[in-house]
């Protein structure tokens, strides 16, 4: 049984122009430890695909299983628990909480866990150290550069040691040197066994992936094994 099993995934949105089909029957199986790249033109359904995978949008049809768990047969609160336990999100444009310091942002997923504060702090510091930002722990997001904010976002996705990390264009707003650093960091994380699904526009990133799918018009148009990892 594959770690990720997606079968007949469809997602329709209602808009003023009528029903828009964002995903039209996606079939995919991904093994644990894979660094999967998702590419495709704008409007091809990449972000919707990632949202569905993250339990954030109910598909119109089809199933998504992560580690054997059928996401959309979980109740609302169980789905939240699943996200807390299984997923790490790295969002486009970082999405850090502006009023929390770097360390507090990293601790955020632990806020709802019944761990001692010292333990939470310790784990967050470890995660920050892993992304090379230990010395910036007390800075607010507004005091960090784009690359640093992205690292904080990655540390936040790592802090729970989730088996699956979903990244939505993490290098989209970074210069090429910083992008390379971030990709190297994600590769390193992937080497420790975490599965990463990353949406990207940048074809240069394909060298980091084990496998790359290209979405076009709501379907998988290409599925390639790449040299990365």
């Amino acid at each position: 049984m594959a770690f990720l099993e997606i079968a007949g995934l469809e997602k329709n949105y209602r808009s003023e122009a009528g029903v828009v089909a964002a995903l039209k029957g996606v079939e995919l199986q991904v093994e644990e430890g894979t660094f999967l790249g998702v590419m495709g033109p704008s409007g091809s359904g990449k972000s919707t695909f990632l949202s569905c995978l993250g339990g954030l949008c109910h598909p119109s049809n089809g199933t998504i299983r992560v580690d054997g768990i059928d996401l959309y047969h979980l109740s609302g609160e169980r789905l939240a628990d699943f996200r807390a336990e299984y997923l790490g999100f790295v969002f486009q444009s970082f999405n850090l909480i502006p009023y929390l310091t770097a360390l507090e942002n990293v601790m955020l997923p632990l806020a709802i866990q019944s761990l001692a504060t010292s333990k939470k702090r310790e784990r967050a510091e470890e995660a920050l150290q892993r992304v090379g930002l230990a010395q910036r722990a007390d800075h607010l997001p507004s005091q960090l550069s784009g690359g640093e904010q992205e690292r904080v976002a990655i540390a936040r996705a790592l802090v729970n040691a989730p088996p699956l990390i979903l990244a939505d264009e993490p290098t989209g707003s970074l210069d090429s040197a910083t992008s390379a650093e971030i990709m190297a960091l994600l590769t390193e994380i992937n080497r420790t066994g975490q599965t990463i699904v990353m949406v990207t526009h940048n074809p240069d990133n394909r060298r980091y992936f084990h496998r790359m799918i290209t979405l076009r018009d709501g379907r998988i148009a290409e599925d390639q094994t790449t040299a990365g990892g």
Binding site: G54, G76, E77, A80, F82, R83, L87, I97, P109, I112
Partner: peptide
Amino acid sequence: TREIGIFRALGFRRGH
């Protein structure tokens, strides 16, 4: 809205 979305994505329950 966005902040609350982040909390929810990070696994916060509605009750949280």
